[in-house]
Structures are given as structure tokens and as C-alpha cells.
Design a protein around this nucleic acid. Structure first.
Lengths: 122, 122
DNA sequence: TGTTGACCTCAACAATTGTTGAGGTTCTAC
DNA sequence: GTAGAACCTCAACAATTGTTGAGGTCAACA
């Protein structure tokens, strides 16, 4: 979904405001995630944050993970396997994605099981 | 604490300690859920809680729902459709289960979608 | 060069989801 | 009828996940 016509994925020039606007995640939340080690940034000489494009990936992932009940700590542990800062390669993402999907699916399965047990065939 | 070999689903005699032990949910959490309106109890003349068997259903469901990212408020809204106190009938549970499963699955789908987008075919 | 909006840090507050403990009551088994 | 385990309420604390605001700095444009 690139509604973002011109944008170099690796340009390390995104300000926190730009990231916030594009991702829909508030600047305060972004700072918070950074403080928790979920994302990282470069700093300008004047100490302002500058983000790589891959931060958008991470933010989308964080949101989706939270929606399926993973805590930030869990997401953090998952992301910890990724090369920090730079854009991770496809393999990295793939392995990560697989783990997350598996975990999420197992939770759904558990819920389904509980629900099935609770609503027996009358 | 009489070890319960026989157990009538509708007997309104479970103490909070018994419920806690059987469900694995702490007594404090049970009281908390009750304060939030997620479960209910009868009281003895001496003001102690006595639970119906259906509380076990609800507790299992609450746990499973939380694991897939639903808040207690969301679970509460879902449970609100159920007849309070007494054991709900199969239809009630069925409709509820369907809604929950749907919501949970849509969250998983969203995560899967995000993950797919993030890990493109290299 | 000046101004103005975006950014910085840090601390305080807030909602959610409980746990812990104090102080008192009830229930059950002897 | 009494001891002790289990229960009660209420308030304080705690972790997680942020938001808000104060007070100050940076950067981009005229």
C-alpha cells in the first residue's frame, strides 16, 4: 500500500513527525517504543531523531501484534532477533513473521477450543 | 475443602476458593472480574460469595479472550448479552462464541496481512 | 538574522489489570 | 462453643502502555 509515491526506503531522513503522520502512531508512542528498545533512530547533530523507512514496518507490526494480545515485551523479544537500525533482510522478516503468526494462531486455537467446550451441541 | 468428585453444574454452592482452585484464576482476580460485572455470585447470609458452575465457563472464556487481545471491557460487552447469574443456554453461548471467534480471527488476519506485506518475496 | 513550528527531555498523570495487606467476620469441624 | 481456615471490604501498591505539559532547543524559511 504505497500511497507514498516518492520515498526511498533506506533514506535515513524521516522525522518523528513524518513517521507519526504516515504510520498513524503518535509521536509520544513512538518515543515510548524507542525507549523500550522496539525501534531505533539516528540523531542529528542537534539531537533530533531521524528514522529509516524500516521503522514503518516495525510500527505496523507492533500494532498488529498488540491487537492479537502480544505485549510490547513479547514483541521486543521477537524483534530482538532482527539486525538493529538498518532494514532487515527478507529472511529475517520471514522467520520473525512465522514465529508471530504461529503464536497468534495458537492463541486463537485456544480460544476456539474454549468456546467449543462452552457451547456444546445442546 | 472437600475434594469434589461429584459436581452438579447448577449447584450454587461454589466458594470463591473452590472456584479459584478449579479454574486456576486467583481469588483476587475473581473478585475483580465481579466488580467489573463480568461474573456474578450469590451471597450467603454471612455475605460470602457462592458461585454457580457457569462461572467456570466464563472464567475460561475471559482468559482465552484476553490472550487474543480483547480487553475486559470488550469481554464484558460480549458477556452482557448473556442472561446474568444463571447458566446461559446453548444458543446464547453459541452466538457469543461466534462473535468472539470472528473478532479474534479478524485480528489474526490483520496481523498476517501486515506480516505478508513486510516480508515480501525477496 | 529572526521567527516559528517541530523537536527535545523529564516528570506527572491516567486507564487497565490485577496483588497485597490490614482489620474484621463467617464457617466448619471438633 | 471455640479454634482456625477461609472469607469479607477497602486502600495502597505495581506493571504496562501510553498522554500531557513545562521548559528549553533546533531547523527551515523569509
Amino acid at each position: 500500500m504505497k500511497q507514498d509515491t516518492s520515498f526511498d526506503w533506506h533514506e535515513p531522513g524521516l522525522t518523528i513527525g513524518q513517521v507519526a503522520q504516515r504510520s498513524g502512531v503518535s509521536a509520544s508512542a513512538i518515543r515510548f517504543y524507542e525507549a523500550q528498545g522496539l525501534i531505533s533512530s539516528d540523531r542529528t547533530a542537534g539531537n533530533q531523531r531521524r528514522y529509516h523507512g524500516d521503522v514503518m514496518c516495525r510500527l505496523a507490526m507492533i500494532e498488529a501484534c498488540q491487537r492479537v494480545g502480544l505485549t510490547l515485551a513479547e514483541v521486543g523479544r521477537a524483534l530482538a532477533g532482527l539486525p538493529p537500525g538498518q532494514a532487515p533482510n527478507a529472511e529475517d522478516w520471514h522467520a520473525l513473521a512465522e514465529r508471530l503468526r504461529t503464536e497468534a494462531q495458537s492463541r486463537i486455537d485456544r480460544l476456539s477450543q474454549v468456546l467449543r467446550e462452552l457451547a456444546p451441541p445442546a
